[in-house]
Design a protein around this nucleic acid. Sequence first.
DNA 1: AGGTTTTGCGTATGAGGTACGCATAAAAGG
DNA 2: CCTTTTATGCGTACCTCATACGCAAAACCT
Lengths: 227, 227
Amino acid sequence: MKRGRKPTIDAADITRAAIAIADAEGLASVSMARVAAEMGNATMALYRHVKSKDELLALMWDSAMEEPPPLPDGDWRDKLGFWAKAVLVAIRRRPWFLQIPISGPPVGPKNLRWLDSALTALEDVPLEPAEKIGVVMGLSTFAQGEARLIGTLAQGFENDPAQFNHQYGQRLREIVDPRAMPALAEIIESGVFDLDDVVRAEDLGADFDFGLHLFLEGVAAHIRSRA
Amino acid sequence: MKRGRKPTIDAADITRAAIAIADAEGLASVSMARVAAEMGNATMALYRHVKSKDELLALMWDSAMEEPPPLPDGDWRDKLGFWAKAVLVAIRRRPWFLQIPISGPPVGPKNLRWLDSALTALEDVPLEPAEKIGVVMGLSTFAQGEARLIGTLAQGFENDPAQFNHQYGQRLREIVDPRAMPALAEIIESGVFDLDDVVRAEDLGADFDFGLHLFLEGVAAHIRSRA
DNA sequence: AGGTTTTGCGTATGAGGTACGCATAAAAGG
DNA sequence: CCTTTTATGCGTACCTCATACGCAAAACCT
């Protein structure tokens, strides 16, 4: 039998508590003391189960992603598009996910299942393994980057809504000298930056959809050139 | 005339000193005390010119990017591809750039010049303004995400080189159950993850090139469907 | 029961951000 | 030239955090 005092908590409990705090108040509110308090333990008790805060963050990172949803019926394009949107949604549900300083390639089971899901979408596509990985990496990179951007803007909007109320276009008009940056000035004049009222999550979603469309279009073209 | 004691330093000086530290030792080494010491001032002297550390980080963010290089001759594709690679190179030169928590849309002059540069590359392309912005945003997102990934892996490699010496594929083989994740298992078996020796920056650059190729291919397809 | 081992945790240390207030320097007014 | 005004320089102090260390409490073994 196992000797010594019985542990009252384990690393998984700590991770869960930390995630609950991050979900409710953001990653900045996750401190060892706070997590311990939330669990009714003393701060230093945590260190019996977790080497350091960095390790706790790594555990949080592994647990943060939910399971990948089952792929829809259709061709690879439907599936991969669905997958990319699922990635965006999953990250958006845990905005602090991208704030965790990561350290290495993914080995956590959840992340590997996401990878498997994307590769399943490409199952019947005639591409080399390395190419498939490239496609998935590119898509994943794009989705994460877009999620980051959306999160950033959403947060900036919370802090200072006035900054976004169709003043952005105006502000750019003041700053940008058409002689110095003619291409940008022309786009500004077209009014794309004059957001009528507020930047909404849906607008940002439209940007994502367009980028996704371009990328998938590129994959299709590449497949065609292969066949 | 302006009353009061003459300032001996200004925000730009502080920003420069902070950037020098970040370049040399990473963003983690940038503390108010450290920056002040480096300038030969007392810690609290900085607060006369900078409201908070967050503000200092924002200033660093604005100053961190170098000027966009002039675009090469060629069609939009050459130019945009060159631009994307230039973004990657510029970020790679300041790996701490992506670690700064950002707050809002870009208004700094350098960032606007990068934007102008990309739009110049699309000058003669028959797309709507909003579409051009979408293309540039997508590309920029992709480049930043890839830079982040490369930086992460490079750092992980420094910390623990053994982890990468063609053990990654082996490790995956142990973890991944082919019955649970057949698509992933098949790719693993193909040996793509068995990096012969070491993950090199060049290999990662190849990934970037492939993703870039796909994206530009997609843009080309979209333009064709427009014409 | 006595010894052993493992967990729980109080105390202490050091780093970092920053509020506050006084000292100091430079211009303006007499 | 001296006083008043105003902006800067910065010492002190406080608070939050992560974490090393060591002792006490609990559970198992003989």
